[in-house]
Design a protein around this nucleic acid. Sequence first.
DNA 1: AACAGAATCAACCGCTGGAGG
DNA 2: TCCTCCAGCGGTTGATTCTGT
Length: 285
Amino acid sequence: MMEGKRRMAHDDELRDIKKGPWKVEEDEVLINHVKKYGPRDWSSIRSKGLLRRTGKSCRLRWVNKLRPDLKTGMKFSADEERTVIDLQAQFGNKWAKIATYLQGRTDNDVKNFWSSRQKRLARILHTSTAPSSSKSHKTTKHLQTPPFDFIPSLKATKLEEEFAASSMETVPFGEVVYPSPISAVPVEQQPYVAFPQFPMLPPDYPPLLEGQDFIGRLGAPSFLDDELGHSALGTAQVPIAPSFQASGTSESHDAVDIDSLIDDDFPPIDLFDQIEPLPSPSHWS
DNA sequence: AACAGAATCAACCGCTGGAGG
DNA sequence: TCCTCCAGCGGTTGATTCTGT
């Protein structure tokens, strides 16, 4: 009886909640509320009858769209992309944390950026990103990097094909040339981009821990230096596609600068998945 | 110009953790 | 100690826009 009434009240409440795109008038109400009380007491907006939105929805709207310091409608700059890639390697999918390093960007922005990037990578690899064994027990569709156990089937060959398809010449995999930390060294002084192949792991190599994904681990210095050692990780220099090679013959192995990889005309920014992580922001001065 | 597929964006959902009663 | 509420986070989805054919 009481339970039934309570449920009906709850249903009425749910029916009264508005969802979907925000109207300008709603935004104005929300902005006024924040002006008066600050960005808090979100649920009071509904309880006062100002809006038929949940507090959660109001907060999200403010954080993602209405906050005054946001870079709305601006694509991620090359620097921002580098930062996200680096920080994702360090922190994992801690989008809120990563967003704090990027002025005017929200966790949603970072998340969407990364998601797009992962989709692109998945497409390049001609495979979908299967759910990873990442930290969460939740199911994941596309945010996680490929799980460790299916990497060997990809090997480097898919990537090589991708480059070959772009009329790039292949470069013998040989001497390992690791890039200098990008933010610490001027781009023009970074002669080569290391392009690690997916390693064939020793059978006794420990499985991924909770919260680890393959690419993140691959990018971790410890992975390269301590766990597998460089010899286990074949590395090739990324060849330059003729399309963005300013001059020189097809025989030359000219360097690729990082910015060229992030350029709009060269989508495989995914290459950064294969590159050593950048220095941690704690080292930035 | 029309269509399809990809990319982007905005918003929702479920869960977690902290604060307070 | 338990419960409830709230804020915040990460993952997911659906709509819209862009781009290539």
